[in-house]
Design a protein around this nucleic acid. Structure first.
Lengths: 239, 239
DNA sequence: AAGTGGTCTAGACCACGTC
DNA sequence: ACGTGGTCTAGACCACTTC
């Protein structure tokens, strides 16, 4: 009696409908989505099915639910984004939060490796942000950030970039970073590292190559971080 | 009408009952747990409540569910443990699996830093395993592993240690590694690194300091890995 | 009081694995 | 045919927020 090779559970279909509407910006960050029962009525399914979808999206950190208030798009606030994607700490535990140092921002044509990494076309333009970040007052991180210019129109005119760029991406450009792929390696400090963050040439540094993806599946940022590794670790919990 | 400060949902209580029974070894790895409906009957709750608990434990990778067969304790098979906790790859993506090189194993008194790291008493003994692992035939990783001896009685008599120790811990000693806390940093290769894995003295190496926790919340392994960082990265996805 | 999400139940039916 | 988990529904009641 089972000739349903393309069987897809109802909640999956509802899930896809909700994600599509989210991606189309039908609801803005901070707003409430329809209540479970209203959406259920609208889609002609039961309330429990909508609940399953909302719960799944909450687990994926796309939504936030608040008893008595409603269901909302998760916001990448400064603190939250820091805590979620910034993993540097003192050995043994204490999490650190960076402060801003010098920075430059410019828009230019994409180079070949950038086009490859960000899936961009031949004529694409990118935004490049170079900056230094401080940990407890000491220059400790060099960041090289490359963005597809079309996702962030006018970002180069932003008077002052915030410490956590991901909250800016979401608030000003509707780009919600959902996932990052990171590759860590060890290298030796160069003369440029020495000039930028004062570390001795030849000292070990931690390098993070990060590609960030946003909600409507797209590569939204490529970031190279060079981090001094004295009294500093990248802390992560695997489960 | 709400004077329930100690309100705990039913599924939470069921969850704790199941975890306690799991920790006491009431069901062994590989065996099936009672079915949803049987456990529900036994505990006097509805089948849906048991389902919610099983689903949560499945998300935490404690259980595995198989339609038509039953619910089982998740097994740390060789492949699975590799994929779950071993994060080394070639730059750009290809995941690697290590092979074994030389190894030594011995039991001795715990030293002060080991007692502190593993929460051991003054008289505790530890098992120390030192080994070299190969990636694609080339010595690439030095590992220094320290275990609380009481958790792994007789492990030093194991004729041949497997590539993935975590499957051995579970199969032979009932120790299921659930979580690891890792701290990564960059260092310079020492003369000993050169002797063990042939890397040039002063070359950059990636160091991972890992503390592993097992199911009945306890520190079950401390591992230091020193990894050559040429053409090799630690790859991780944050969500 | 009204509306929201959170918990819990009871029951129907489907899909999968085993016998 | 049977038992398992997987999906879906309908409804009750609880807890929290807002008015």
């Amino acid at each position: 009696m089972n000739d349903t090779p393309g069987f897809r559970p109802l909640y999956r279909q509802v899930y896809e409908i909700v994600v599509r509407r989210l991606a189309q910006g039908e609801w803005r960050p901070g707003e409430a989505l329809p209540s479970e029962s209203n959406l259920a009525k609208e889609l002609g399914v039961s309330q429990g099915t909508v609940r399953k979808v909302f719960d799944a999206l909450t687990a994926e950190k796309v939504l936030e639910r608040h008893q008595g208030k409603g269901t909302f798009i998760a916001e990448n606030t400064q603190e939250r984004a820091q805590f979620r994607f910034f993993r540097l700490a003192r050995p043994g535990g204490k999490r650190l939060t960076p402060a801003l140092g010098n920075e430059t921002i410019r828009v230019r044509a994409a180079r070949a490796p950038e086009r490859a990494r960000l899936d961009l076309g031949r004529e694409a333009r990118v935004v490049e942000i170079d900056r230094v970040r401080l940990l407890e007052g000491i220059p400790a991180i060099r960041e090289f950030i490359v963005l597809p210019a079309d996702l962030y129109p006018g970002i180069e005119k932003t008077p002052e970039l915030p410490n956590s760029l991901y909250s800016l991406y979401q608030a000003k450009f509707g780009v919600t970073i959902m996932t990052t792929h990171e590759e860590l390696s060890a290298e030796l400090a160069t003369a440029e590292d020495h000039r930028a963050i004062g570390i001795a040439v030849g000292a070990p540094i931690l390098v993070i190559d990060r590609l960030a993806l946003c909600l409507p599946e797209r590569k939204a940022e490529w970031r190279l971080s060079r981090i001094r590794s004295d009294n500093l670790v990248y802390a992560i919990t695997l489960t």
